[in-house]
Computed example of a mutant assay.
Amino acid sequence: MSARDQLLVVIDPVARRTDGESVRIAKDVLGAAASVRVCLPDGPEDFAKALARRGARRPVVVGDDRALIRAVGVLHRERELSSCALSVVPVGATQVLTRALGVPSGAVAAARAVLEGVERRLDLLVDDRDGVVLGELRIPPVCGVGSGSGVGASSGAGASGGAPDGPAGAEGHRPWLRSCQSFVRTLASRPSRVASVPGPAPARLRVEADGVLVVDLDQPVEGVFLTPGDDGYAEVEVRRSSVGAEAAALRVRARTITVSGSDFRYRADAVVAGPVRTRTWTVRPGAWGLTLPK
């Protein structure tokens, strides 16, 4: 049996908890056509140890985007990415990155791609602290919607729907109910303070691409986006803040990108990091391999 037919299947604990059926299907499909050794790590440390002890077996990650990012990060820190092609069977709620990379969705199709696919070498963004970016990096990170809008909506629903829920004429027998409903209507009619809170202020950042200044601290920006390409360069987009007419985004291609300024956070793939004062990302051409359909 060739080394290609010997697999180390590392099943992320989140995948086991969220979709045990897809995990079982993936194991069955892989086990029917290859020699499989299954590893069930309990956490990140066990996950890293399993990859380090893979021997000649091809590593197959069963999990979501975070599991794939973790695997690439572990192999990068061990300096073993160049000699190892990863495979992934996406299982879990977060599969944006794996789909963008071309991995089939669904346990059966993804498992067959592991068995029948080919290795594709992909560029990688590596920062000055050995962090990796497979898909997109965004500064500042996308902020989730606060719970305040939900509270306001539920209050409005309760105010408008409170009377019909009880029997007709209930207010006449329960004067306290009429007072409560009046109070709720008063609250619901007031503008929500949470909804009026403005979004994050434009950031003051200095962005350099291959040593060339793209934007300086005197020009506030709405966002900075970095994406590794497939030719040794990263795509860099800087969206400047403007008053009135929309400012055109600045787009450049570079091998090394440095961002500095006041403390800022960034989202690298599915992980938010920071705050930091400065960070440099460098493109590593063809640094990692992923098994994809032919």
Rank of each mutant, 00 (worst) to 15 (best):
D5K: 15
D5S: 15
A15Q: 05
R16F: 05
D19W: 10
G20F: 06
A34S: 11
A34R: 00
A34Q: 09
S35G: 11
C39R: 15
L40A: 01
G43Y: 09
P44W: 06
P44Q: 00
R53P: 05
G55L: 01
A56W: 15
R57W: 09
P59I: 03
A71G: 05
A71Y: 06
G73W: 05
V88R: 01
V89W: 01
P90C: 02
P90D: 04
G92A: 02
Q95V: 15
V96K: 09
V103G: 06
P104M: 10
S105V: 04
G106I: 07
A109S: 12
A111T: 07
A113M: 03
G117T: 11
G117N: 04
G117K: 07
E119N: 11
V126R: 09
D128N: 14
V133W: 02
E136H: 14
I139D: 02
I139P: 01
C143I: 14
G144R: 11
V145L: 13
G146S: 10
S154Q: 13
S155K: 10
A159R: 04
A159Y: 00
G166W: 15
G166V: 15
G169Q: 05
G169K: 09
A170Q: 12
E171S: 13
W176R: 13
W176L: 08
L177S: 03
L177G: 01
Q181K: 09
V184C: 08
R185K: 12
L187S: 04
A188H: 01
S189G: 10
S196W: 03
V197R: 13
V197E: 14
G199R: 14
P200Q: 09
R206V: 13
D210F: 08
D210H: 10
V212G: 00
V215I: 11
D216G: 10
L217I: 14
Q219W: 09
F225D: 05
T227G: 13
G229C: 06
D231K: 12
G232T: 05
Y233C: 00
V238A: 03
R239H: 11
R239V: 12
R239F: 09
S241I: 00
S242D: 06
V243Y: 15
A248E: 15
A249W: 08
L250V: 14
A254G: 01
T256M: 11
I257L: 08
I257Q: 03
I257H: 04
D263R: 14
D263W: 11
A270S: 13
A270F: 02
V271K: 07
V271M: 02
V272K: 03
A273Y: 10
G274W: 03
G274Q: 06
W281L: 08
T282I: 09
G286P: 05
K294H: 15
